Simulated scan of single mutants.
Amino acid sequence: MRALICQAYAPLDALKVGELPEPVPAAGELSIRVEAAGINFYDTLIVQGKYQVKPALPFSPGGEVAGTVVAVGEGVSHVRPGDRVCAFTSYGGYAEVCRARAAQTWPLPDAVDFRAAAAGLVTYGTAWFGLHDRARIRAGDTVLVLGAAGGVGLAAVQIAKAAGARVIAAAGSAERLALCRAHGADVLIDYTTTDLKDAVKAATGGNGADIVVDVVGGPYTEAALRATAWRGRVLVIGFAAGEIPRIPANLLLLKGCELSGVFWDELMRREPAEAARQVADVLAHFADGRLQPPVTAACGLEGAVDAMRSLAARKVAGKLIVLPQAGQGDDRS
């Protein structure tokens, strides 16, 4: 089968399209004909050996897929060959067929397009876990989203709006903020030109944000924490700025607020039944149009490296996907 292959842990340019054996599912696994696969930041790390998961070489990156079941291993009963599914696979998705764990594969409603599922499973799953589970979002909350034009950021904007919240989107350019506005953000802040704390305070009448969704880290985390309301909930999701922040613990005390980690991978591993319930909620929102994953561009396997490079360089707003069944030279936007 055709796949984008990582032969050695190395920079992205070392990835090449080639042939790999089609995977055979073991007990508790299944194989999927991949119609679409999402591109996430961890995909750019795993091929360089910089992610916590280090697959045996050679392998294909791509941990978020949607397609149809090809075969099932022993003990798999909730899906059958031919069923439409989406899955979190950690890696292997930039290939015509991939292998997935049954516990991290979920039926895909007919009303949900493969592209939407591949564009939204990880980002919307993460944002849903953060907002609904960890932050216990309520109608009327004010939600500040840092890095709001990225995959998780836009998902958080949409999920917060669907829950009846007021959304303050913070991003690094007018173009990115316009995208946030198009997806429902109420207030826009360019945190590269404006003091984040002062802007949030001004937008909330001095009260601060009830919930902070932080996928950026760096110096913005403390600024957002200082702009958090009494009994606020701060969600730590990622560190796109490249720096893991050190949090002044006295701010948590003074504001009576919560600082919560949001690691969707671990929810799936430790609490598979709860993860399945949350995925079903997300997919139901996809099916009825309450949530709409933004696909910025789609490409075939030959275009995947360029797409990954753009994501790694922080040049992407929204979500990029790979279409492994597309013919050579059939890249599209």
Rank of each mutant, 00 (worst) to 15 (best):
L144H: 00
V187S: 05
K315H: 12
H132E: 10
G140L: 07
Y9L: 01
T68Y: 04
L235R: 14
E64T: 11
I46P: 09
A155M: 03
A182K: 15
V213I: 13
A148Q: 11
A174Y: 00
H132Q: 08
P23D: 04
E266S: 11
I168E: 05
V295T: 13
L251M: 13
A36Y: 10
G75F: 04
D43A: 01
A156G: 10
L188G: 06
R270Q: 15
A326I: 03
V24T: 15
R84F: 04
V79F: 10
P21F: 11
L12M: 08
D210L: 08
H78T: 07
L177K: 08
V17Q: 00
E271D: 09
I39Q: 12
D195M: 10
A297Q: 13
T192L: 14
A87L: 05
Y9D: 00
Q325I: 04
G217N: 05
G125S: 10
V187W: 04
A66R: 03
G318F: 11
I211Q: 09
A162T: 08
D83M: 14
A174F: 01
D83A: 15
E302L: 04
V143F: 07
G62T: 04
S90C: 04
L4S: 12
V262A: 12
A317P: 01
G261V: 02
G120E: 09
A185G: 07
V122L: 15
G329R: 12
D265I: 01
E302N: 08
A87Q: 06
I247L: 15
V34R: 06
K255M: 03
G300E: 06
A160D: 12
R138F: 02
L301E: 11
R134S: 00
A37H: 12
A148M: 09
I159S: 07
G120C: 11
A160I: 13
G238L: 04
A203I: 01
L154A: 06
D83F: 15
W128L: 12
G130N: 10
V282D: 14
A171Y: 01
A56C: 02
G318K: 12
V216T: 06
G164A: 05
E29I: 00
I189L: 11
G206H: 04
I32T: 05
F286T: 08
L283S: 05
G120V: 10
G28M: 00
A27E: 13
V279S: 03
S60V: 02
Q48H: 02
R138E: 13
A148T: 11
A284G: 14
A307F: 07
F129K: 01
I244A: 11
A224I: 06
